[in-house]
Simulated scan of single mutants.
Amino acid sequence: MEQIQKSILIVDDEDYIRQSFIDYFEDRHWLVFDTESGESALELLKTQACSAAIVDIRMTGMDGETFIKNASKKYPDMSFIICTGSPEYKTSEDILRFPNIANQVFGKPVIDIDKLENTIKEMIGRQNNKDLAIK
């Protein structure tokens, strides 16, 4: 059986946050892409498929929720995980309607990054099982 490489997109306007995620996921054999804005992430997705994205909410320009709404419609097979440094952030009703958004919001700094990775893997697994059921 052919093994599909896991790919992840990190969307965060803070360099050190992106780099810490890049280091973690590359060490675990993920193919990692990163951008500093929602706009550049949408451009990247035009040419590079990703299994999942970790998305900051408060960024310069397009905010994370707007990115997720746009990307989720165009790339419904992707999974999206919100990771924010804003403790007061509450997921909007609009975002909760998308089936490919993680139920849990992860705060920054991420205390349990293994739990974050496991959440991503579970979401990708559910998506893959749904695709197999359709075929």
Rank of each mutant, 00 (worst) to 15 (best):
E26G: 03
A41Q: 02
H29M: 07
K46H: 08
L132W: 13
E2T: 12
E14N: 08
E93D: 12
T91N: 01
G38N: 11
T60E: 13
D131W: 04
T119M: 02
R97T: 14
V110R: 00
E39K: 11
Q3F: 06
V110D: 00
D56Y: 06
S20I: 08
K6T: 03
V105E: 07
A49F: 13
T66K: 12
S7N: 12
V32D: 03
I54G: 01
Y75L: 05
P109W: 08
L9N: 06
I8Q: 02
D15P: 05
K108R: 14
I68H: 02
S20Y: 01
L132H: 13
L96S: 12
D94I: 13
C83M: 07
S92Q: 01
Q19P: 06
L116W: 05
F98A: 04
I95G: 10
N70G: 05
A52Q: 03
F80M: 02
F106T: 00
T84C: 10
K115Q: 15
T119G: 03
T84A: 04
P76V: 07
F98T: 04
S40V: 00
D34H: 13
I57D: 00
V110L: 01
Y75D: 00
D13H: 05
V55W: 01
M1I: 08
K69W: 01
I101N: 02
L132K: 15
R126W: 13
M59W: 07
E117W: 09
P87Y: 13
S86R: 13
K73D: 11
F106N: 02
Y24N: 09
S79V: 14
K73Y: 05
E26R: 12
T119R: 07
D114Q: 14
N70Q: 15
P87Q: 14
A133S: 15
Y75M: 04
Q3D: 09
M59V: 01
D27S: 14
P76E: 02
E122S: 14
K130M: 12
G85A: 14
A49T: 08
M1T: 12
Q104S: 11
I54E: 00
F25C: 05
D114R: 11
T35Q: 15
L9H: 05
E26M: 02
K108N: 06
I54S: 05
G38F: 00
Y89I: 03
F21P: 00
A53L: 09
P87V: 15
A52V: 06
I17L: 00
I120P: 02
I68S: 00
I124F: 01
T60L: 10
W30Q: 12
A102D: 09
D77E: 11
S40A: 13
Q48C: 09
R28Q: 09
Y75R: 08
W30Y: 15
I4A: 09
K121D: 13
P109F: 09
G85Y: 09
I81F: 07
D94M: 10
E2I: 10
E36V: 03
T119C: 08
G107Q: 15
D23W: 00
